[in-house]
Design a binder for these strands. Structure first.
Lengths: 126, 126
DNA sequence: TATTGTTATACTCTATAACTATA
DNA sequence: TATAGTTATAGAGTATAACAATA
């Protein structure tokens, strides 16, 4: 059931609607919610991306001007990734689109029920 | 969050574990829950598969001996799809595997909470 | 002519392995 | 030598369009 729902969300989360691909949104969103100023690339495996997919995804986002990569001075093998202003703007637009999609999909649920759903899902062991 | 969880489930639903690919499981499961003896292929769009993907998926399952396709005598353009005994066995095995995976993932939730989750998800408008 | 199912084909996504540079 | 990041490449998965048989 969960998979069915996820498929539906994916199909409806088109790039035209959000201005971003779903994976791009997920990475930007993770970057942003990390709170801290920057992140090591390896933390992008929090999103279950192989290192190579990670690179490709970051390349796309860098080409779009939504992130910046800098070498970590402490260990010049590492990259520090940072959200740009444009990136934050794009992220916010995509998040609004996602929210309104969520509103459609969960229209039958009250605010309280949605909160319950979120809370239950967040307790899943991934 | 939903997408994250779905990704995790997908990654963990390996073919070795279930004996079936996830999409194969979804189709067999849909066939089986249809209750009725047979189904027209077009109903496989209930799973959001393009007609061509549908054919390919059914080919795989037919090669495995898990389904049978017959022409509909009433309209010989149509195919009627039916689950075989082998198919039912494979489906049951895969469903058991999925259940135990579900048990792991939702270990933190009580039976009642899981029921609540199912009920909330089932009310989503896809 | 329209519809069901199929095939051919290409495009995106994801995975594997080899390579570069730093440590 | 080991690790972070990258590149090359191949394999799934998915989508588009043309085609055959039947209506």
């Amino acid at each position: 059931m969960l998979m069915r729902l996820a498929t539906a969300i994916k199909k409806r989360s088109t790039e035209e609607l959000m201005g971003l691909k779903l994976r791009q949104l997920m990475l930007l969103s993770h970057l942003s919610s990390g709170g801290a100023p920057a992140l090591q690339q390896h933390l992008c495996e929090a999103l279950w991306l192989d290192p190579n997919n990670c690179v490709l995804l970051l390349n796309e986002l860098e080409d779009l001007g939504y992130i910046e990569r800098r070498r970590d001075p402490a260990d010049r093998r590492r990259h520090v990734v940072e959200l740009t202003e444009d990136g934050r703007t794009a992220l916010e637009r995509a998040q609004r689109a996602q929210e309104s999609l969520g509103d459609e999909i969960f229209a039958a649920l009250s605010d309280e029920e949605r909160a319950t759903l979120r809370s239950l899902l967040s307790r899943a062991q991934v």
